[in-house]
Every structure is written in C-alpha cells, then in structure tokens.
Design a protein around this nucleic acid. Sequence first.
DNA 1: CTGGTCAACATAGTTAACCTAGTTGGCTGG
DNA 2: CCAGCCAACTAGGTTAACTATGTTGACCAG
Lengths: 111, 111
Amino acid sequence: MVKHTGRPGYLQIADNLREKIRGGSLAPGTPLPSTAQLAEQYGASLSVVKMAVGLLRNEGLVIGQQGKGVFVRDDVPPAPPPTDELAEIRLTLRDLSERLAKVEAQLSDRR
Amino acid sequence: MVKHTGRPGYLQIADNLREKIRGGSLAPGTPLPSTAQLAEQYGASLSVVKMAVGLLRNEGLVIGQQGKGVFVRDDVPPAPPPTDELAEIRLTLRDLSERLAKVEAQLSDRR
DNA sequence: CTGGTCAACATAGTTAACCTAGTTGGCTGG
DNA sequence: CCAGCCAACTAGGTTAACTATGTTGACCAG
C-alpha cells in the first residue's frame, strides 16, 4: 500500500487516515482498525502505524483509549486554524521541493 | 531531568524545548544541541529525543537539516491570506503532488 | 446466579539497533 | 599547494522487542 515516493511511510499512512476521516469514510465515534490490522493493511510495520496514529492523536483528530481502541473524535476540527493550515502548507511545499529535487537529479544523471 | 510525573518523557522534552524557543532562550536561527547531546542532557534515550524533536518539527517550530542540525525557525507569523486563496493553494498543492507522484513512479519503474 | 480469575487483545511508552543520506574537517598522495 | 578521499558526526526513517496498563469475554468454583 505504501507508495515508493520520497514521502516517508508514516506520513503516507497518516495522510490516508486523515483523508478518510475528513472525507467521512471514518465517521466520528467509530474506531479505527487496530494497529495490527492497519499494519497488515498498509503493508507496514507496527512501529510506523503507531507513529502515524500518534500524529493524528497529536493533531486532535483522534483519541486513543488504552485497551479499547483509537476513535475518531466527535468534534473533528473541520478547518484547522489558519496558522496551522499555513504550517501544513509549508510542510507540504518543503516535501514537494525535496522530492522534485531528487527527481531532477535522477533525470540529469541519465541525460 | 525527566520528571516522574504521568506525562511521558518525549512530551516533557518537547515542552521544555518549546518553552526555551518561545522564551527566546533558543533564538531563531540557532541550532539545537545534537540529538545525542540532548539525550544525555535529559537523561533519555535517543529515541525519545528524536520523538520530541519530531513533534517540534511537525509543529513548524523547528527545521531539521540532515547532516547539519536542527534549527529554530525565524518564524514571522504571516498575515493569514484570504480563505479563497488558501483553497486555491490547496488545490494547486494537490495537483502538484499527483503529478510528481506519477513522475516518481515512472522513474522507479524504468530504473 | 455470583464473583473471581485468567487469557487475549488493545493502546501507549521506551529502548536498542540498523540503515540512509548530508555535512564537515583533516589527512594524504600527486 | 591542493584536489580528492575518508572518517566522524549529523538528522531521519524503519524495525523489533519489551514493559505497562486497560478492556473484554470466557470459564469455573462456590
């Protein structure tokens, strides 16, 4: 499942889950699959799944309850405060720049 | 250094660093101590320090440069642009991501 | 039926090890 | 002198293993 792009796996998984939550595919109050299931589903190790879930937890999108599971928060902040969104955009820009630089390097090598 | 409170160590370290940054004790542009130094300084393992730094990185407080160090951002809180422009930017970013992903996929296939 | 135990499964935190990749500075061979 | 190599140090990503703790359901003795 995890693509062979420059973007690290734990970010890809976090992106995917975030998208599903924001898109309503994972409704508020519903539990995410367990970390073990997610690991198998994405073809990743437990650790990267835990890192991805930790990100969402840190963003407040999701709440983990020991022994039960990880649940989508009811009050999903639909629009993160402008500064947060700006920060996210900057991160995305940096990611794109790095990946583009690598692609350009490979292209010039084979030219 | 890490207290015996309920708060996990990686959050304590992140809090402490965040405080130093916001308080000016770590000025913009200056590098943080290396992860190894931080680990010794806080009496924690490398992993928890990496997690703490990762948090700050995710928050945009700090920028890591491979091979050099982790630097405090000279963060000028920019005036939030109109939401319309924000939406447009997001669409552009999504488009760029998709196109870049295709290029990367072709490169990895033909390699 | 009731209460207790126990096994299975869940998140969460921590540590250690290994790998990639970028940077820097010093040393050496020409 | 100096160009190039190399060792040391840096951040970042991934994986595995272990501990702690909470939840749940099955099972059994009383």
